[in-house]
Design a protein around this nucleic acid. Structure first.
Length: 459
RNA sequence: GGCCGGUUGGCAGAAUGGCUUAUGCAGAGGACUGCAAAUCCUUCUAUAUCGGUUCAAUUCCGGUACCGGCCUCCA
């Protein structure tokens, strides 16, 4: 069994990955807060973990991997959206959730085993707060329940900062009822017109970090293998999850490996809602197929910041044109199901080196283009598709990739013109032949002549 | 201010204590083609900077510069 290496945030270096139980490898990834259409950053992270999921399935077997990715559907941003638009909370979260699922499907992200929603785990969260109060890690102040940071010696280890450092440059406005400025909210009161649930501490709602602790322990157990998310979640979100989970379940370690993805940048600046420099997945997909966006995400190592440009998106599209062109030329070759190549698996096992894996894909495509015998083509085509599957690529039909969804009339019209041109070519009437080709080109259709005839593609 | 990460050719982006530093795009030349397109072949260009360790560093260590992230909601 191949050894997987991952960059662990806790150890701040690449380490060999050893699951707690190879029969049930468990991974939890923080999903989006559903209050608005997903932006590119919201899409990049699930694409990265989709690769990790595919790798874990390949190495340990699909039935031995449990992948959980949550949906945050209780949050003040949703509340604000409700105030702005007048739409009900339920309407906002349902709609946004469905948009998110559509985006994920377009990006060929495999469904996790569970997509738990925070509102379905309120009882579990209340239980967690009770435990923390009972064992002295939480306290009540002015109707809030707060986590007592000083009660957990390990606080700050994940994000690699000491309490002193955090306070040094802190810009937080500190509520005066906090014993320590870093104490964070486990449960807060809701006004009558705000969403809330009855609890031992009155009508209220959970603090942000609580849901992931509750859902991970319910679905994966108190100790599980990998916890993932964007690097902007390291502090305070993951630090706080870690603290409250370890304190609620003494003797457990919560996640054994922490994996974080680099931020998506626009013109060298982190893309974020608060800065307003963001693109939604939706609007980007108006300009290129989803697969091009997926491939673009994989051209940079996940741990690095990723700079998004529309030029890059176009290059990714061109790369896929090259790949699909090779598949198109070998359409008639039967597709065998084979295992992914050792090289691809090794590249991904080395902390998800997707750029290296992509370079192998290029090599295979080049070999396929050069292959002379049907046996060779058959072998290389199968290899290419198996390798591409590990990256979640080449999931489209080659012919559809180039021709799109056309109605029969359009197709017939194009083919009639190609037939006319073939006649002209036969008579060496190059002027007519070129005129037809140019006419089609203005309609975005490119012709390719070959010894066996002429094929067409949409650009 | 504190903590963390980065700096590889025209661009994107891997890898590596020494041998030819991938891969893709772009550029140059060629094959194929009626001409194209697609494809194939050949080819030019890079390790921020200054020190240290070493027989040998782009790679390890330290300083400097620049860039970015986190420290507040964020994937």
């Amino acid at each position: 069994m191949i050894q997987i290496y991952l960059h662990d945030t806790l150890k701040q270096r690449k380490v060999p990955f050893t699951p707690i139980d190879t029969n049930n490898v468990r991974i939890y990834v923080c999903g989006p807060t559903v209050y608005d259409k997903a932006h590119l950053g919201n899409a990049k992270t699930p694409v990265v973990y989709d690769i990790l999921y595919r790798l874990l399935c390949q190495v340990y077997g699909k039935e031995h991997v449990t992948y959980v990715s949550n949906i945050t559907d209780v949050d003040d941003k949703i509340l604000n959206k409700h105030k702005e638009t007048g739409k009900s909370i339920r309407e906002i979260t349902e709609q946004t959730y469905n948009w998110y699922l559509e985006d994920m499907a377009k990006l060929n992200v495999l469904a996790p085993n569970f997509r738990p929603r925070a509102t379905e785990y309120i009882d579990a969260m209340i239980e967690l707060v009770k435990k923390l109060l009972a064992n002295g890690h939480a306290y009540a102040a002015e109707n809030h329940i707060l986590f007592d940071v000083d009660s957990f010696a390990g606080y700050g280890t994940l994000s690699g900062r000491s309490m002193k450092e955090m306070l040094a440059g802190a810009r937080i406005e500190v509520a005066d009822y906090k014993k320590n400025p870093a104490d964070f909210i486990l449960w807060k009161p809701s006004a009558a017109d705000q969403p809330g649930w009855d609890s031992p501490w009155g009508y209220g709602r959970p603090g942000w970090h609580l849901e992931c602790s509750a859902m991970s322990s319910n679905l994966l157990g108190n100790d599980f293998d990998i916890h993932g998310g964007g690097s902007d979640l390291i502090f305070p979100h993951h630090e706080n999850e870690l603290a409250q989970s370890c304190c609620a379940f003494p003797g457990t370690h919560f996640a054994h490996y922490w994996v974080h993805t680099g931020m998506l940048m626009i013109n060298g600046v982190k893309m974020s809602k608060s800065l307003g420099n963001f693109y939604t997945v939706d609007e980007v997909l108006q300009k290129a197929p989803a697969e091009a966006l997926r491939l673009l995400f994989l051209t940079t190592h996940y741990h690095q910041p990723f700079n998004f440009t529309f030029e890059g998106l176009q290059l990714a599209k061109n790369t896929l044109d090259k790949f699909y062109n090779a598949l198109l030329k070998n359409q008639d070759i039967p597709t065998d199901t084979v295992a992914p190549s050792d090289k691809i698996v090794a590249a991904l096992a080395d902390d998800l080196n997707t750029p290296l894996a992509l370079s192998y894909l290029h090599e295979t495509v080049n070999e396929l283009n050069k292959a002379e015998t049907p046996e060779e083509r058959r072998r290389l085509k199968a290899q290419l598709l198996a390798d591409a599957y590990m990256l979640g690529l080449l999931y489209n039909d080659a012919e559809k990739w180039f021709k799109g969804e056309n109605d029969d009339d359009e197709t017939a019209a194009i083919e009639a013109l190609i037939k006319q041109r073939a006649e002209a070519k036969k008579n060496k009437d190059w002027a007519t032949a070129d005129a037809i080709r140019n006419e089609l080109k203005t309609r975005g259709i490119v012709l390719e002549d070959s010894p066996t005839g002429t094929t067409w593609k949409k650009i």
